[in-house]
Design a binder for these strands. Structure first.
Length: 292
DNA sequence: TACCAGGCTGCTA
DNA sequence: TAGCAGCCTGGT
């Protein structure tokens, strides 16, 4: 991979087989990346606004520099990991993963912030992606710091626990979180009153990390798996939502197997690559409507 | 107008 | 321990 800095941009050469913005941002792992008219994506991460697009074989990060690339974007986009090798390992497991990894060849698992993932996936429970995005944007606009303007639009950081603790249950409900308002309030109060360092869960092993997460109101098995995978870099997890259940029933397990049993089957079959396999299978299932 | 999607909580047996 | 109703919102 070659890295070129030019005109407030960072350009990556030689990674396009393993990096497709559409696959990365539409595979269900993130909610704050806005698709622009030119098919590029704009997002807010660690107080920066950045735009990402694919042009021929180049990946172009706009509105950034080499220092931020080294300090933020290299880890955030998981650029130290060889996704070709992961796909090759998955492909030889069976024909379904061969198709799914080809279909979502540009997927990468972002290394996102654990706190933002905790609140975002509580909002995701029993909810649809456009409504999840709207609620998170409302919380950020009302309680997060103003980060800057890009292409005429104002952008805000996801609020810290302290910033969110200013909001009442009614305020949180007003951000269109629905019945999850009380869960968010309870988590925010607990974390800010006890100075709980959610990010430190990353240091725990996967089971311990998930056990800590399910103690929070509004966090059940699926939501905890998502937070662990997308916010704590625990790749030996396998979140089972309706789409994953459908694709697993289509390809691997009998119908009406319980969600914990589907998860156990997947962890045994896919091992340390379970989290990656989940992403390829989820994207494949949802885009093609498998099992509907 | 009625129904559906979607995961967690809390109640019941 | 399993099963199930209810929660909120926008789309069909």
């Amino acid at each position: 991979m070659n890295i070129i800095e030019k005109d407030n941009k960072i350009i990556l050469e030689g990674i396009s087989d393993d990096f497709d913005p559409q696959h990365v941002f539409d595979c269900g792992q993130c909610f704050r990346w806005l698709k622009e008219e030119d098919s590029s994506y704009t997002g807010v991460v660690q107080g920066r606004v950045i735009n990402v697009k694919k042009e021929n074989d180049l990946i172009i990060f706009d509105n950034t520099n080499k220092e931020d690339f080294d300090n933020i974007w290299f880890d955030y986009f998981d650029l130290g990991r060889d996704y070709s090798e992961i796909k090759n390992e998955l492909k030889i497991m069976d024909e379904y993963l061969e198709k799914a990894t080809e279909f979502g060849q540009g997927i990468r698992i972002l290394q996102q912030d654990g706190w933002e993932m905790l609140i975002s996936f509580i909002i995701s429970a029993n909810n649809r992606i456009p409504m999840i995005q709207r609620a998170i944007n409302n919380l950020s606009e009302r309680y997060g710091k103003f980060v800057g303007e890009y292409r005429g639009k104002k952008h805000y950081a996801f609020p810290t626990p302290e910033e969110l603790s200013q909001a009442s249950v009614e305020d949180i409900r007003a951000c269109q979180t629905g019945f999850r308002d009380k869960y968010i309030k309870s988590v925010v109060d607990y974390v800010s009153e006890n100075n709980e360092d959610v990010l430190s869960y990353r240091e725990l092993n996967t089971d311990e990390c998930i056990n800590e997460l399910v103690r929070f109101n509004g966090v059940g098995p699926k939501v905890a798996d998502c937070i662990a995978l997308f916010g704590m870099q625990k790749y030996d997890t396998f979140p089972v939502d309706v789409w994953v259940k459908r694709v697993m029933e289509e390809f691997y397990v009998e119908e009406n197997l319980s969600l914990p049993k589907i998860r156990k089957f997947a962890l045994e079959k896919f091992g340390d690559l379970a989290g990656f396999s989940q992403q390829y299978l989820f994207y494949y299932a949802r885009e093609l409507g498998i099992g509907r």
